[in-house]
Amino acid sequence: MTEFVPNTNGEYAVTAFSTHWIKYVPPTVIFFLLLPVALTLFITAGLNAQSYGNGADMLFLGALLLLLLVHHWYFHRILSEAMVDVIITNKRVIFCQDSLLRFDDMHEFNLQNLIAVQAQKHGILQNVLRYGSLWLDTGGSVSTDLGGVIPQVPHPHYVAQQITTERRMHTESS
């Protein structure tokens, strides 16, 4: 059994995880579709620049621009997602959403104010790959309200159960 060590406020992390790996799939597919095109243009234009003159130079610049754009966009997306997003403690649920240099959001749901937790897995992909969304109802919100929804949670039913257990323990202790 895992032993949790609380900090000075009596709070400890029960679990911390990153959202499901499916988030990497769309940027990786786009990256590997565009990368060969950009690389071929880049190397062909680079090697033929001397023989074909200014036309090849312009093509080289265009290919370089495309290659760098794809490269920076991909790593920006991957690095933005490559951090722990969801932290569940014995007192709150923390959900962090960030896109480097664009936004850095942190949503905190106090277990004391939590009315219900709803786990949702919709569609074949979510059921096969075992991920879904969690709706944390703090009162007055609806499941379509994005502020209370954590998307792409791996094993959402198990996580919902963990949150419910912590909430019950928190209510009993206070």
Binding site: Y12, A16, M83
Partner: peptide
């Protein structure tokens, strides 16, 4: 910068992650 903030948060909660 963001990773440093996140690691500090995890450490403050005594998480092994």
């Amino acid at each position: 910068h963001i990773q440093h903030k996140r690691i500090n948060l995890l450490r403050s909660l005594n998480s092994n992650r």
